[in-house]
Nucleic acid binder design. Structure first.
Lengths: 213, 213
DNA sequence: TCAAAAGTGTTCTATCTACACCCATGT
DNA sequence: ACATGGGTGTAGATAGAACACTTTTGA
């Protein structure tokens, strides 16, 4: 491999909220370089398809999910000291119940709570921090949370999702007002019973395409 | 060149405010591909240095400027239909009086008002739009305007700079209050006479490193 | 004394924050 | 009737927007 022809990979920070905590999907490297460490899933770019298509392919291979929110994040160099390489990082927002993880023995993908990550290969921790920061900022002025939630959801679901990403408590009443005044969600008319208490109204996103306010 | 080993280039959106208008530095392509069109300056990445070093090198070659504000913007593929290629775009903020443009006959760099750009090679217009949007957003919560202004400047200079990027009038009094309350600038104590009128106080940025508020 | 730009405060409005009680349901 | 989470309103503080006159200087 000549110095002029680096290896280019697309890697994806796949984020989901599970049981009120933000998780990222990692694979365990069973071969060099950085053998036996956790890392973001990725795939080599073949130079023919779109870069974003390469990221989509990685996302689908690892999760079975297609068509969710995907955005370019950052391009990192020098990740692999052994050869010239470039990693174009994307992040994806997925709804965990739609995910079917790959079941291989090696390179097995697994959810990890973002709060308590080990030291990852290729300085991937920095990319995850960046992705979380970016998503948090975008929650304020876009509807991209649709990527993290199912078609229908309660205000509680939405509230937990926001708190998981922003890592701070949000007043329930103010949160509700803000969401409604943003106009990105609407009541479906339905309700959901979940226990010995009042049923919650169901909502949906008015659009499941990215909308900027 | 195999499909697995694309060409990687660093390209730079170099922005400056000249006479109250936002400008971008472009080179005129005197060879294929896209011969005879204007494009962003760039250089091939050699795979050894940091990507950011490659961008810095482009910036210095075209402007003589070093050590100003530089940030990664976006990585674009399929810019050149003839071969697999990847362009990692950066944007830089420079103070035009410090710039000494390269004087070659071909590939001569030239400032262009962002308001009235021609159709550029490699869909570079989109990258410029992105850069301007990003800088505009960051003016609100960072001090990166330091990159566009000399060591000392008047409130008028600062005001014109902000208006040039945001493309909208900003009330002078409110602007002044906001800048001072942000705490990113301070009076030097000096003044500058510029004509038959009251001299303006001079200010400097309290820090010339990026600061987030 | 005039022209030209620098400098300065107040009022109003909208937005954000803090905060506590009643409601609907199942057991 | 009680336990559990769902649902709602108000008051105070803060930040942003609108707006016009006085000051300093050189000619």
């Amino acid at each position: 491999m000549s110095p002029d022809s680096p290896v280019v990979a697309a890697i994806v920070v796949i984020l989901a909220v599970r049981e009120g905590k933000l998780h990222v999907l990692l694979v365990h490297r069973s071969g060099p370089p950085e053998e036996d460490r956790w890392a973001l899933p990725g795939g080599r770019w073949n130079g023919v398809e779109d870069l974003e298509a390469a990221a989509t392919r990685v996302l689908e291979r690892e999760t079975g999910v297609t068509n969710l929110y995907l955005e370019q994040l950052f391009t990192a160099d020098s990740l692999d000291a052994s050869a010239p390489s470039l990693a174009v990082a994307y992040f994806a927002l997925v709804e965990p119940s739609t995910v079917r993880l790959r079941k291989e023995e090696s390179w097995r993908p697994q959810w990890h709570a973002v709060d308590s990550l080990p030291d990852l290969a290729f300085r991937n921790n920095e990319l995850i921090d960046q992705a979380v920061a970016r998503v948090g900022a975008k929650l304020e002025y876009t509807n991209i949370a649709y990527g993290l939630l199912p078609e229908q959801f309660t205000f509680r679901d939405l509230h937990e999702t926001y708190e998981a990403i922003l890592r701070k408590p949000l007043d329930r009443r103010n949160f509700r007002k803000r969401m409604l005044s943003m106009g990105i969600i609407e009541a479906t008319g339905g309700t959901r019973r979940e226990g010995a208490h009042r049923p919650a109204k169901l909502y949906r996103f008015t659009s499941r395409e990215p909308v900027f306010l």
